[in-house]
Amino acid sequence: MSATDEAPRHWARIQESGSVAGMRIMVWIRRRLGPLPFRFMLVWVILYYYLRRPLARRASQRYLRRIWPLHAGHPPRGLKRLVLRHFWAFGQSLMDKVAAWSGMPLDVRLEADHRARLDTAIRSGRGGLMLVSHHGNLEICSAMSETRDDFHVTQLMHTRNAEKFNTLLDRSTQRRGPEIVEVSEITPATAMRLAERINAGGFVVIAADREPLADTGRTRDIDFLGEPAPFPEGPFWLAALLRCPIYTLGCVREGGHHRVTFEAFDDTSTLRRRDREHWRETAMQRYAAWLTEQCRHYPLQWFNFFPFWHTDDR
């Protein structure tokens, strides 16, 4: 174990640490040899990461200690096994992600009322901003956009991860995913590009549960699972500035299929400038409450394997 493994690092430097080469091998196994050999290999990959990533392991433990009483009504029992299951869920999600973007058939289900809401949102032609999180598989949702011609999705992604994914996808799959806008910070140019997409009836997807990559990025402490944690302000500034319908989009793995949830969150079309500050604050709290609910129902599918709360040693 190298000393750097223990050094404080930003999530972008520790997350998605699977090497591109390794992922390509896994994709090849999945596509050529089928799901069973693939699962067999994945067990070893996950075990390897479990043993080699003490920082991620500790982050997982801390999170599970916080969420488990909400989920099960009692503190976690057999924490080590739970952490391992948490890692397993993450490994599975990475592979689902690749499968989704390489156009493999996926069993995606939307309950009737969620489907109706999505249909209405698409048909309104007003587009919107979809707040997502690192809970579940948001790439599955983006892959859905390929299934209908009138559903255009633009996904904001941190440059560091986007580059890696693009490399992976270009080489191992024939198809490209949804439109990816790579950002390390949100500039006027980015905002204008997104406004254009929304004006054309498209949907912009942005995760709001990660600290911004740039040191200048603003965060605000929001109570999350019993203690303040820094949430990025950027997505909520964008939501206020873009003046459009805001939704939350979730996607969890339930056994062999993926369950997508789509709900209205707010509408900033008529939000006045002087009310923005207040709106942003309450919106961030409501987002954290939404995320809490997601985690409460599916605790093992929140994939943040890095110190999230202020009190966590970094």
């Binding site: 949100i186 500039t187 006027p188 905002a191 204008m192 406004a195 500034w237 964008l238 500035l241 873009l242």
Partner: peptide
């Protein structure tokens, strides 16, 4: 700056 950018676009 973001807001000004959006206004210029509009």
């Amino acid at each position: 700056a973001l807001e000004l950018g959006l206004a210029l676009q509009k």
